[in-house]
Design a protein around this nucleic acid. Sequence first.
DNA 1: CCACGCTCCTGCGCGC
DNA 2: TGCGCGCAGGAGCGTG
Length: 270
Amino acid sequence: MPELPEVEITRYGLAQELAGSTASGAVVREARLRWPVPADLSARLQGQRLKRIERRGKYLLFRFETGTLIGHLGMSGSLRVVPAASPAGPHEHVDLVFGARAARLRDPRRFGALLWHAGADESHPLLADLGIEPLGDQFDGEWLFRATRGRRTPVKLFVMDSHVVVGVGNIYASESLFRAGIRPRRPAGRLTRAECTRLAQAIRDTLQDALAAGGSSLRDFIHSDGASGYFQQQHYVYDRAGQACRVCGQSIRTLRLGQRSTFWCAKCQR
DNA sequence: CCACGCTCCTGCGCGC
DNA sequence: TGCGCGCAGGAGCGTG
């Protein structure tokens, strides 16, 4: 599933190939994504130059001359540049066409989205209330310490709340908490300053490592048919229930938190 | 404001 | 081997 590093690599790859190009339209084979793809998408894009592609959280922002195409890959989506004339396979729902090339959205589970925003800003309701960027300058231990004060929600759910911090999905939440040595059920507001410092750093490191892993396989990611696209990171705890902790050897435990599977080591995390 | 559970959807893995 | 069931997950949204 695309987490923030995959989205960033997608953004970078698409921008390398398509920024500055002029769209000739869009082909919508299946409009039923999370929200309906606008019926007039092709007309809106036709003849417009794609100025640049930005990212906010896991949202991709295609900045065109008269507005922004907001994209989200949901949990099964990918966007890749293909020859516009190549036949579309299963679940390849939308093409953003730029002459002979197209950015093709494949999204089997259709949790993704493509929406039009008539502006060059972040005033769209989906963007306006997003939290801080975890790889930005503001995000550090002190910020996290202040943000968590008074919050009783389990720290894992807190860091996964995109209105607090964007881009920390279920996998990286467990991984970051392991790296920080903090148990996932700890009430967020009870973390010490030192723990917040460790956690903020762990989140940055986890995302940065994934980004680095993705950078080295960038070519594959952009051009492959998908299977090799997602980063095969070595997880410390995620999906390792019952297996030996890579640090201490104890059996990795699992629990449900907010209807999400959660993995942790009882010895390494306190 | 806060906490929490439901929801969308399809592919996969498991048990029989 | 084949079938059917349950689970997985990002994040908006409704409810208490």
